[in-house]
């Protein structure tokens, strides 16, 4: 079994209105060191052992449903879950 952690953010080239608002708010809290904020999504998938290629599977899921690649980019980490 694997735990897959998917991180989705707006692409670099796409203006992030939420990130901009959060950055402004951080500045008003005097955290002027913050030069950029990108707000994204975090999705955790628990995937049972399968004969299918895990990377292939996760990429497919990301591109079909989890991310909209017109405006979003994604990355993911895979952790093996040891079960007794």
């Amino acid at each position: 079994m694997h735990k897959v952690k998917v991180y989705i953010t707006l692409r670099e080239s796409v203006l992030d209105p939420q990130g901009a608002a959060v950055q402004q708010s951080l500045h008003s809290l005097t955290y002027n060191e913050v030069s950029d904020v990108r707000v994204g999504k975090y999705i955790e998938l628990t995937i049972e052992d399968t004969d299918r290629d895990l990377d292939q599977l996760v990429k497919e899921m990301c591109e079909k449903l989890l991310a909209n690649t017109v405006i979003e980019s994604y990355r993911y980490d895979v952790e093996e879950v040891i079960t007794r």
Partner: peptide
């Protein structure tokens, strides 16, 4: 073609 983002003013 394209996609929607949150409104600029949120």
């Amino acid at each position: 073609p394209g996609a929607m983002r949150r409104n600029e003013g949120l």
